[in-house]
Structure formats: structure tokens, C-alpha cells
Design a protein around this nucleic acid. Sequence first.
DNA 1: CGGCCGTTTGAATGTTGTCAAGTACGGTGG
DNA 2: CCACCGTACTTGACAACATTCAAACGGCCG
Lengths: 291, 291
Amino acid sequence: MTSFAQAPSKIPIDRHIYHASTDDLYAECAQEMSRTMVKYKAGDRKIDAGCDLFSLGERRNTIFYLVNGWVALYKLHEDGRRQILHFALPGAVLAFFPGQVMTYSAQALTSAIVSVIPHRNLYSVFRDDPEIGMRLASLVSSDRNLAYDHLFAIGRQSARERVAHLLLELFIRYRMQWPGHCIEDMHLPLTQEHIGDATGLSSVHVSRVLRNLGKDGIVEFHYKRLRILNPDKLIDVAGIDPHIALSWVKDVPSINATAGHQAATNIPIAVRIKQIVTVRFSRHSEWRGKQ
Amino acid sequence: MTSFAQAPSKIPIDRHIYHASTDDLYAECAQEMSRTMVKYKAGDRKIDAGCDLFSLGERRNTIFYLVNGWVALYKLHEDGRRQILHFALPGAVLAFFPGQVMTYSAQALTSAIVSVIPHRNLYSVFRDDPEIGMRLASLVSSDRNLAYDHLFAIGRQSARERVAHLLLELFIRYRMQWPGHCIEDMHLPLTQEHIGDATGLSSVHVSRVLRNLGKDGIVEFHYKRLRILNPDKLIDVAGIDPHIALSWVKDVPSINATAGHQAATNIPIAVRIKQIVTVRFSRHSEWRGKQ
DNA sequence: CGGCCGTTTGAATGTTGTCAAGTACGGTGG
DNA sequence: CCACCGTACTTGACAACATTCAAACGGCCG
């Protein structure tokens, strides 16, 4: 529970920054969606790691579309207590509808790029492109579902379950960024304090739990690198209903993009989840070194 | 943590039930919205108290618009742990977008009426009536914000704070159902176990906390009746940022309906909140006896 | 090298859960 | 009218899990 919001966000707005960094790794889906939104956006904006994108109490007249990077949504109480609400990955919509005041803050965990869509254009989106409007609504709905998953975890699960839950979720959601491509371990730009603030635990206790999970050969998290050692056990410890794990798979990037992708819906759900966490591709293994 | 999902939901679908019960107490806003949705809905449906509206794992091809009654959204783990995610009031959209599987269940706390809107019509809504589509998205976004509020409460607040938080929230949201009308105490169709399951506490501990809050002259909750004794202290104990309390006020029914209503935006937020919780009207006091 | 940040570990403390027994209320049936 | 029952709530004693405090360690960077 450190103060967190130290670095004030510089606000460099450049048009279409992200086209310049296309070689960087980020979601194809996010790219695609961003392309369709291109006519509505006012521009792109780059946020340095550690900077705030927006803060509690602000009244914005834009929504953001996260193109690249990790962003944490969080609430910071005046006495220093912090709760992380959501880790946003590329493709996420950081949205607040006209008239709503921000009830939380957002901070970039890595350097990040967002597309800025003014509210006045939002109306146009819904009017001229109902398909996109509906997808936006669907994305927000998925976020809500994720928040509900976290509510169950924090409210009713033990520390061990919560941490396992979070790591599994992040692993699945991250992996789903590149449908078809798989990774054995991933870069997770978090500290143990972040994990604690997301799971409602103290960082000290997170340390203990992680140590146990490692000792039991389930997951390792060292040097901001997450490695799943035993997917079966992890799923087991996380105590997640398979339906819910599957919703992480399907919901995140876009409803239609992944629908016919590779998922055979007649495979038992538990098996399907295990596949997703387990299957290894050799392609793109060079990413492991990066960042 | 009882089994909860005992009573199987009977599914009587009648067309436009709610028109027949217009004299009953429910949100004007809900009514208004429902009217505009009338051409899209397949009909109305009445759910008896204690019956499930839908359950985890189901794949629905409809969304529901709650016209009347209280509905609890909850997750039920196989070992009996339960977490209540949200108390839905009239005007809420219980929505799952096409392709999404239910990741939670919903149970009526009182007898309730919902409008049923098939997914196939949902496309029409977004296409033909972007205003409504956007309002739907906005409602979902408000739900997400509420979920985030609960995440902070469960993750970072003490038992006393959490209970105060929940009661204050329900009181404000309930009162906002009838903008301009006020109530001193309200009918809260919950048991202490519901409160525990919503706040991540055991019912035993909720009992202790409620007893203390009563002894301190802050709130009373006896016999499904909630009475705010000391709004200032309650707001204080709940430890809520005024921005957040205000979002409960503005978000719930519909963005535009309450906007110009009575809110003078230049009043300090804390004062405004206090007004909302404190001001008493004599009108509609007859409701106190009902139900 | 020194300082900083993030992590690890142990010991003491504390909030909340669990268990168990008892109370209050409302409904039902004699 | 009363006895009986079930449900919800209350209360105390105890246990458990997680927090706090404190000290020490390790890598990284100036």
C-alpha cells in the first residue's frame, strides 16, 4: 500500500502514434478494432509506465481504447489503502459515459498507448455503426463479469485460492491476446504489492503464498516473469468454475473474432481450459526474451 | 451460506403483466424506459420470491429488464460458499450479450417482474434506436462501477465499514428510485445472511456489526426494515469518497432523467449526499406500511 | 561502494470465522 | 388458547487465517 500515484501524467497527444510502432507486440484484435474506430478517434496518446491516465473525481469527455500496454484500474483511499480493480490489456475499453464522474483511477504499468475517442463521437459510433456500439457494450459487460469473478474471489476464497485465481486469469487473458499463439511463460509487469492490492491481501502474505505455490510446483513468479508449472493443479487450487475460465477465453478480444477460431464447443469445458493453458507452440518463443 | 437455490423457477410468460399492476410501487424511470423498450420485448415474466431467474452455465438468448422487485445476482460455489454480486433494483438491465454464457445466477428476493428482450431484437435496438443502445451500455457501465465499489469495500475495508457501506448504498439507490420522494426508513428484503454474502462476511459477524451500529445510534436493521439514525455518522463509518456516493445517485435510473432534476452541481458533494440521505418529505409516507 | 526497492522470514497481534447453545418471532395445528 | 416447529438472530468461547512490525537479504543503479 504505497502512495502509488507519485508520477503525474504528462499528456502528449500525437495523432496515430501506434501506427509507428506496429512492430511492437500487441493484440491483433486490438489493432483490428482500433482500425474500425479510426474515424471516431481524436488521436492516440502515449502514457509512460507509472503515469496516471486519469484519476478519481475527474470528469472526462472522452473514452479510451487501450491499444498497447498494461493499465491498472484502482481505487486509492485517503488513508493509503488501495484496491486494484482490473488489469486492462490491449483491446480494453476504458469507458465512462457522458455525465459520469470517474470513480476510480488508472495507471499505466508499462508504457502504454491509447486511442482517445471524444464523447461527441461516441454518439456517432452508436448511431452510424451499431455493430461497434454493441461490441462496446459487450466489452463493458465482460469487464463487469470479470469484476464479479473478483468479487467472489476476494469475498469467499482463501489467500492461496485468490492468488492462484488471479495468476490463472491473467495468464489466460494474456495468452488469448494472440489466438493461436502460445507461450510457456509470460511477462507480468507486477510487483507482489500489485498482486496483494488486486486480491485484497498484504504484500507480505502474497510473498508467503507465492513461495508455497512455488514449493508445490504449481506456479513460479520471479523477476516479473510468470511460469505455469502445473496447469492442472493451478486450475484446481484456483477453484474456478470451468464456465468462468472459459468466459475469460471468449470474452476478451471480441465476440466474433475468436468464435469460430479453434474452439470446438463439444469438447468438455474443463478439458478445453486445460488445453488453453497447456498447449505449447514453438512460434513466437522469441518473445520470451523481450521486455 | 445456505443452499439458496432450492426453489426451481416456474416460468410463466405473460404479455405485459406489468401494465396490470401499475398501481404497485415501482420506479417511474423503470416504467418510462420499459415503455420505450416495449416494441422490442417479447413479453413480461413474473418471478416468485425465492425463484431463480437464471443460473450459472446457462446460455440465454435474451436479456432482462427489471421492472419491479428486488433481484440478487450471486455466485454459488459447489462447496456452498456464496457471494452476492449485486442487488438489482427496478430499472436494472440483467444483460448477457450474444455468445456469453452465464457466469453467475440470479434470484428474486421479492416477487419480481422482468421484461424479456430477445437477442435478435437487441440488434434492432442498437440499429434503430442508438439512444437506447447507448443508455443500455451506460447502465452496464454503471453496474461495473458499482462492482468496483464493492471490490474496494470487500478487499480493503473492515467488517464495520463494509456493512455501513452496503446499507448506505442500498438506501441511496432505493431512494433514488423515486426522485423527489423521500423515505425515512425502507423495506430491505434481506436477511443478515444476505448481507454477509454480499460483504464477504459470515452472518454471525454481520449480526455483531449490526448490533454495534445500532448501539452507536447509526443505523437499525430489524425485521427487514432499515432505518438510518445518523446519516453523518453512517457516511463517515462507510468511509466512502463523496464522488462515489454521488455516482450512486446519478447513475442508477437513467442519465438524462435525473440530470436537471434537482441537483445543483455547484453544491459541495458531501453536502449534497447528506441532503439526499437526510431530507424528508411527508408525501408517500404511506409506503412505509406496505409490503 | 551505498542506497533503494522489492522480497523474504519470523514473531506477535488482531480481526473474523467456526462451533455451539440459546433466544425471539411467526406460523401451524391441536 | 397453547404447544410445537422452523427460521432468523444473538452471544460467548475458541481457533484460524491474515496483518503488522521488524529485521535482513538480494538485485540494480547511480
